[in-house]
Design a protein around this nucleic acid. Sequence first.
DNA 1: TTTCTATATGCAAATACTGCATACCCAATT
DNA 2: AATTGGGTATGCAGTATTTGCATATAGAAA
Lengths: 91, 91
Amino acid sequence: MNKKQLIVKLSGALNLSKADSERTFDTITNTILDALKGDDSVKIAGFGTYKVAKRKARVGRNPRTGEQIQIAASQKVKFLPAKALKEVFNK
Amino acid sequence: MNKKQLIVKLSGALNLSKADSERTFDTITNTILDALKGDDSVKIAGFGTYKVAKRKARVGRNPRTGEQIQIAASQKVKFLPAKALKEVFNK
DNA sequence: TTTCTATATGCAAATACTGCATACCCAATT
DNA sequence: AATTGGGTATGCAGTATTTGCATATAGAAA
């Protein structure tokens, strides 16, 4: 399922036009992103938690040449599903 | 940041009451969940992809007792941030 | 049409995972 | 507004799993 199909579903569920649904959806993702930039975690009870995780620098490898490469430290967004979410998919 | 605080932000950005913002937000998370139950991935360009990942059964260990444990196969929801999302947090 | 994303490759190192108790913070109800 | 019940984080040990590097291509999405 891609974004367009999701928007169609949302449009029905929210009783909004597709354009409005998309605007709403984008606003929400942007708000979450902004929150993550300031704070470093966004907790949504019953769904999950978005966190910015720091990843240490380490030694990697160019899979094409096999040559070793130093990989810089970085940050990535992680999503930790809530308990309710795990249960939904394990019944 | 927790859900309540996020709702307040959304309320401002969407120009909706807090109650409506929360309803909208819950509708979206539920729609994503439903999509994940049917399909097994939801791709949102520019944000990320939610996937249901199957995890094989394996042998684990109770860290308290050291005793070996058989861990059943399970499924969990994974979120893979899009490229744009990684870049935001690595500048 | 033009941008975005998945895939595939080998391999080292980081990190997730498990049970469980405690502490904590949040959400909802009164 | 306050209390309470429930969801969530933390720490632990050791193994399993994931990650992420470069890069081109194919396929899908905007």
